[in-house]
Design a protein around this nucleic acid. Structure first.
Lengths: 216, 216
DNA sequence: GGATGTGAATGCATTCACAGCA
DNA sequence: TGCTGTGAATGCATTCACATCC
């Protein structure tokens, strides 16, 4: 069962976040038919040190070749395996508003191992409608759909006031990971993975940086 | 080496990120007419320790009252001042695709101190069209618009292949902060603030967490 | 020579624990 | 008593520096 994941619990969280960025960069080099890459180059492309890159990758195994670097195609496969995206994940979306429709239109999912397979909305005025390739389903269909399609990931694109309620419904229905776009802090059990993106928070961080970056 | 900005440079980045979350939570309590809040409660609402909250706020000043806590309305004003969102920021958007249109439709900007004032697209088929309240402008209008409206923040919602090019144009035209939704690592000068949101990266992180969270 | 992998050293961020104030 | 603000202690993450291998 447990082959080359020696110490899952001692891996720094920042290292895992960077792993996704390494992968994105590696895929770019792969498109350019670059066969091999050094930790130095990989680091430079993301403004990191070479040591940082090597240390990060070494948490998961020995993927490099001294004197040569990392084989791009091989490392991509390894990183995907680590992140769990070597297999395809079915994903559902709740919220057929502006943001939800943007998600439905996003063509980049499948290349990264994700498959948007169902869209829900609580508003009866929206359910039944055909938006792009999707028919918007009512919330009652949540549980059966999740089970039938073995969905573990959900994207939450509903108004702030409903986010916690819908999150509860999703977890109740068996979802294991939640990507939340509503500007609220969700109260989520320990065994459910969650991740939030708040547009206003992002802009605030820029505002702060600009306001305090006068002297350089 | 000795500079006269006492703490501006020694504030941990994670503390600044949490500041935005504190603000969001405080605003929620303010809507509920909660007059005062303790570091304990504020921490619990975000799964942080009370000491963490106090230490974070103390980087910026002494805002609390021993025995009582923090005055909600006052602290909101203080935090907004710190983040720079006590004044309104004009923001522009590049990219009138799916995601761009979602941004145009987002009603939550102004309450947080941001004002979307102009939308651009490189595609001549899109420029001139009226989308919602916005007329999509061609890229040639970038520089004059930025200067006329004193825009310092930009949201980048263009395809990956164009992100770097457009980023360069924006910086050239005087933009100081950049919120990038394209799945690429931008190469940006030191004195420009930047922040990225990559949907696939977010999902990958969830995938990893779920895959390695079996034992709990 | 050119590059990795990794203990050791450094540097940050978080937590502790307590003095001090309302 | 209840709560803040903060030095000191702890715990993590990053960087250094070098043995090792192609």
């Amino acid at each position: 069962m447990n082959m080359d994941s020696p110490r899952s619990e001692s891996i720094p969280d920042p290292a895992v976040r960077r792993l996704s960025l390494y992968l994105r960069q590696l895929e770019e080099w792969h498109r350019q038919n670059r066969p091999t890459i050094s930790s130095k180059e990989l680091g430079q492309s993301l403004s990191l040190t070479d040591a940082q890159v090597r240390k990060d990758l070494a948490y998961f195994g020995q993927f490099g070749h001294p004197g040569i670097g990392y084989h791009v195609e091989d490392l991509i496969a390894r990183v995907r395996r680590i992140l769990g995206t070597d297999k395809l994940w079915n994903v559902l979306l709740v919220g057929a508003g502006n943001l939800g429709r943007a998600m439905m239109g996003y063509r980049g999912f499948s290349a990264k191992g994700f498959n948007l397979v169902a869209v829900f909305d609580a508003d009866p005025a929206k359910t039944g409608a055909k938006l792009g390739n999707f028919t918007v389903l009512p919330m009652e269909k949540l549980q059966p759909t999740i089970q039938t399609l073995d969905i573990r990931l959900a994207i939450l694109a509903v108004p702030a006031d409903f986010a916690q309620i819908v999150a509860n419904q999703l977890i109740e229905a068996g979802i294991k990971g939640l990507l939340n776009f509503a500007p609220v802090s969700l109260n989520i059990p320990e065994n459910i993975a969650t991740n939030s993106v708040d547009l206003a928070v992002q802009l605030e961080q820029l505002s702060f940086q600009i306001s305090t970056l006068k002297n350089s």
